[in-house]
Design a protein around this nucleic acid. Structure first.
Lengths: 351, 351
DNA sequence: CCGTGCTGTGCAATCGATCCCACGGAGTAC
DNA sequence: GTACTCCGTGGGATCGATTGCACAGCACGG
């Protein structure tokens, strides 16, 4: 502690202290080539003694690998996104990669800037929950030889692989469950039609109804942003129908909270008067009263698979081989799972 | 698209295309020194034409600045943390710094590894919500000349500045509010005593009671983890008291959700039978039924101030000046604010 | 005894920027 | 005309690691 100032110890110094050349020291510390046990020990102890920490910037310049992966995501608030972010970070770290976090708030301008910045930092991979407004820039990234994985959303014309949630199937699962309980008037509160999940979940909802000989009723369907106020407003709307629904499918946890609040306010009891299923898990749904039936969209799996896919692409490009898209991007779809709790039950007799 | 392979354009190439030297091209693109307008235009157009993107790794090696800031955080799930993370990232980005995200899950071993890794990446700053188990390693980081900002927690012996929530004052505020409404039997559901927020919030709770001539009653106080199940269990416990409390202070939003679920289950109505105040804002509290009175611990401000503080330290160390702690670390405390909604009211007559 | 191959090590080029230093020429002062 | 100051520009060292190439020493087969 007597002067271990801010000047970091370099490999040269370690080499000198160990009485070997820089090259040998490097070989020992990165374990690439064979070195005699004696020198190995000498270098290691010198490194230890001096408190040597390799400079990844220098090493990155030479090896052309930053060990950084850009994560461009629309927000962190949504339950799926922060679960995914956590899982991703952990999995990538296990393989020596770090996450450069970029939150766009769905702003294409910020997204664009982040993409350029990630290019400048020479990230080894890009995982993106995109707005769809910058596919040209994403193309540039891909053309620069950086693997791209699209997460949750695959905009038209985007390069790279995709890891997508099984939105359509999940919504179908939820509605089939409600139909199976005997519900016929099922309301839908869903996301914006312009977003993959909004579109796909509605498609699943409609498909399940159609398969049962029913069809979506416009005044039982509300589509809008994934927000608490929208959920509340939507419930007010669908519950104002002449013939009230007996069940409600709600497409994300924020909207569901809005819905739950509004239902309490309306004095509608769940599940006695209205069955409720939410398409997204949240930590407190199992503990709610009643515990909420959900479609688990596999957020953890999404993170896991996105990490694995980007790592695979990085590995399969050992030393900046071919740049181009090797065939078309691969599409991985994560299965959804219905978790039945107590917020759904057969419809009661109309009052 | 005819061969813009993965090999990136370098400054040399831009310089050559513009017919100037590498030095001049650098000067134009980093705008450091005066250059004639003619050459400036030539270089800029060449850079544009070739699609030049500066290599931050190379530049970082030379300038000894990575433009990276390490964020070591215990988790992303907690509402405050993801708000803070989002704000931090945005603020730092505005000043050209990017966030290297590290989630520890409160595991000291992972924390330790992350700190070493951040050192290797030569981050320009460290913002940490620490476990308190690695102060020695944090000392190393600080000794390496990297500014450190402790967020929400300031373990004994940690170097650097601190940006802390006004936990004690906030809890006091909440309890004073309840006392002011006429409550005398106030229950406490709080965090682990080993964590700053757990300790401070309890202290504030106790202080407010003491100032009113009361004292905390052991069977109305539950202290445990910030989890939904604990909140539920704690409510069960305090509501089992012979003389039920008329008000409840709950120390974070996860526990509050557990509590709300349990209260519904017990058939206890809020606020008629029990007033509730939560020490932490969540997006849906304003929309709940009833809207929940909260102590806003200023998560956005915490992020904002932590970002500003680290940036200030980085700037005030223009070119690796003195390493040492310039005096003691600065302590910044963020004010808490009581937001009164409808979950609190004067106590009713005992039934 | 000599050629061959393997092992362990060192030398020096290299990655792509930044920036100190020097230099030529124009402008100004005396 | 000489000396001096700017200004714009180029040359080249430098940051700290990695890595291709060369070479010394040793073992082994013929």
């Amino acid at each position: 502690m007597i002067g271990g100032g801010p000047v970091a110890v370099t490999l040269d110094q370690v080499a000198e202290a160990a009485g070997v050349s820089k090259s040998t020291a490097s070989r020992v510390l990165s374990g690439s080539s064979r070195v005699s046990d004696r020198t190995k020990r000498a270098v290691q102890s010198a490194a230890e003694r001096l408190g040597y920490r390799p400079n990844r910037i220098a090493s990155g310049l030479r090896t052309r690998r930053s060990n950084l992966i850009g994560l461009v995501i629309t927000n962190l608030v949504n339950a799926s996104f922060h679960t995914i972010t956590g899982v991703l970070q952990q999995r990538l770290d296990e393989c020596g990669y770090q996450v450069l976090l970029c939150v766009t708030d769905s702003d294409p301008v910020r997204e664009r800037r982040y993409l350029d910045m990630l290019l400048d930092h020479r990230v080894d991979g890009l995982i993106i929950v995109g707005t769809g407004e910058n596919t040209a820039t994403v193309q540039q990234v891909s053309a620069a030889g950086i693997p791209v994985v699209n997460l949750m959303r695959t905009p038209d014309g985007t390069p790279g692989d995709s890891v997508m949630a099984g939105d359509r199937d999940g919504a179908e699962l939820a509605v089939q469950h409600l139909l199976g309980l005997g519900h016929r008037r099922i309301a839908f509160i869903g996301g914006p039609p312009g977003v993959d999940s909004g579109r796909d979940r509605y498609a699943g909802f409609a498909a399940a109804l159609t398969a049962a000989g029913l069809e979506p009723e416009p005044d039982l369907c509300a589509r809008g942003p994934y927000t608490v106020p929208f959920g509340a407003e939507a419930v007010m709307r669908v519950m104002a129908a002449d013939d009230r629904p007996t069940a409600l499918y709600s497409a994300n946890h924020e909207a569901t909270f809005g819905a739950l609040g509004a239902l309490v306010q309306l004095g509608v009891r769940v599940p006695e008067q209205l069955s409720l299923v939410c398409h997204e898990e949240a930590p407190w749904f199992p503990y709610w009263h009643p515990p909420i039936t959900v479609v688990d969209n596999g957020a953890r799996d999404l993170g896991e698979l996105a990490a694995e896919q980007i790592l695979r692409r990085i590995d399969s490009r050992p030393d900046h081989g071919e740049p181009g898209p090797e065939g078309v991007g691969r599409l991985i779809r994560v299965g959804s799972r219905l978790v039945v709790r107590s917020s759904t039950m057969p419809p009661g007799r109309p009052g």
